[in-house]
Amino acid sequence: MRPILLSGHERALTQVKFSKEGDLLFSVSKDHIICAWYSANGERFGAYKGHQGALWTVDVDPTTTFLASGGADNTIRLWEVRTGRLLKTWEFTTSIKRVEFSEDGRQLLGVTEKRMNQLSTVIVYDIKQDVEAEQGDEPSLRIVVDELPKVTVAGFSYLNKYIITGHEDGSVSQYDAKSGEMLHNAFSHDDGMQVTDLQWSADRTYFITSSKDKTAKLHAADSLEVMKTYPTDTPLNSAAITPDPVQYVILGGGQAAMDVTTTSARQGKFEARFYHKIFEEEIGRVRGHFGPLNYVAVDPTGKCYASGGEDGYVRVHHFDESYYEFRYEVEREREQGIRF
């Protein structure tokens, strides 16, 4: 496969997201700009300008109408994807580490950072499904996280039932998405090792977390039980679950950006690692970035994946045959068993 290199950003990428149909790709970086790309050929659709600080996060709603972004300028902004119009700005006292739309796109959550005597909060807004409507100022839910360390990532589970948060100390907790009450708390990663990413399976019944403790773990949304563990040899920044028909997870990481200059690209382990989701075994790697991978995202239709690196590039990889054809012996036997 020949990767498409997208060089619309001048600084390190922080997040990349695909639209639901996988045709558009949104990328945010520390250079204050959001870029939108056609994933098929790498053509840039446009850019959304307005933020005054580094951007940490972006998400697009399932209809690809709204785009939400958050960053170090302490704002969450809502954009119209098609025209690039800024629809709403919500202001906060600390920076925004994560935004995510719910499965139905009617709710948007944001995570504010714990800093300057401000506690981490998870806020939820109801999004009016009309680009002309004035979005409300007040959140429909505000979860103040006081007894736990600061929240780094969060997301909505299936049917907006839970909000799952990942914390700086490697723990994962589950909140009721209606009442904001904490239901579960699990210490799944090594103590003190930050949860760096949380991505959902297609049906949002389970999710994968990546951590600085060099592992990624697959959790059930209901029980927070760790179902699978993928050990690596490098701190991880991101983990993604590939959609059907293949059963892989893609992990991205590499040593911390500040140590990069002292080692060669090869030792830095700046590769996307493919693990088999069920057998927890590494099956391959894709190299290319000069710096750590800050985010990996998979096209929900399974045609390609994109990685955003500290080096300022987004690389879009369209999978070729070998990606779809690879099977373990037992998988092959099972398939044949079904056929006869």
Binding site: M1, R2, P3, I4, L5, L6, S7, G8, W37, N41, G42, E43, R44, D233, Y248, F274, E281, E282, I283, G284, R285, V286, R287, G288, R315, H317, F319, D320, S322, Y323, F326, Y328, E329
Partner: peptide, 25 residues
Amino acid sequence: PPGPRPDTTTLGENIIFRPVVGFKS
């Protein structure tokens, strides 16, 4: 005009990705 622009979009070198059982780093 439509189509990728060379200043923002370039093609990388071909990468052979072939999943194997028991990949060893």
